[in-house]
Amino acid sequence: IINNLKLIREKKKISQSELAALLEVSRQTINGIEKNKYNPSLQLALKIAYYLNTPLEDIFQW
């Protein structure tokens, strides 16, 4: 999986903590996703895309 979450999140000036709060997950979860240590569920990936107002395929590429 190619993961552009960190790049997109930083472009939008959103911290890991802010995104985690919006998604109701821990900051460690966001960190793990960004470091490719954790693959989000489809539901979480869709929520990330929604809150970042970015197409899912721009954030994650399988």
Rank of each mutant, 00 (worst) to 15 (best):
T54P: 00
V25F: 03
Y38D: 05
K13R: 13
W62N: 07
I14M: 15
K35G: 11
E10P: 02
Q61W: 12
N3M: 04
S41M: 04
A20L: 02
S15I: 04
E18C: 09
L19M: 05
Q16Y: 04
A20V: 03
Q61C: 11
R27S: 12
K13N: 14
Y50D: 07
T54S: 08
L44E: 04
I33A: 02
I1W: 15
L52V: 03
A20R: 02
T54Q: 05
I48V: 05
P40I: 10
K6I: 05
Y51V: 15
Q16I: 13
N39D: 08
I48T: 03
F60H: 01
Q43D: 12
K12V: 08
K35P: 01
I59H: 03
L46V: 09
L7S: 14
E34D: 02
L52F: 06
L22M: 14
G32T: 09
A21T: 12
T54L: 05
L52D: 00
L23A: 11
I2H: 13
T29F: 14
L46A: 06
K13L: 10
D58K: 09
I1H: 11
Y51M: 11
A45I: 05
P40D: 05
A49P: 00
S15Y: 07
K6S: 08
Q61M: 09
L22D: 08
R27M: 13
L22G: 13
Q28F: 09
I33C: 03
L23M: 07
L44M: 09
A45C: 11
P55Y: 04
Q28K: 14
L52G: 02
Q43S: 11
S15R: 07
E34M: 03
L23C: 15
Q28D: 15
N36K: 12
S26P: 15
I48H: 00
W62E: 07
Q61G: 14
Q16T: 07
N3H: 04
R9G: 01
L52K: 00
N4H: 11
S17R: 11
G32K: 14
R27E: 15
W62P: 08
K37W: 15
P55E: 06
S15L: 06
E18H: 12
R27W: 15
I2S: 12
L52Y: 01
I59L: 11
A21Y: 09
L52I: 03
I1P: 10
E34Q: 02
I2A: 10
L52C: 03
L44N: 04
L19V: 01
L23H: 00
I33H: 01
P55T: 07
L42D: 05
K37Q: 14
I33G: 01
L19T: 00
Q43F: 10
L42E: 06
E18A: 12
T29Y: 15
N4K: 10
R27I: 15
I2T: 13
L22R: 09
Q16F: 02
Y50L: 11
L44Q: 06
Q61T: 10
Q61R: 10
K37A: 10
D58S: 09
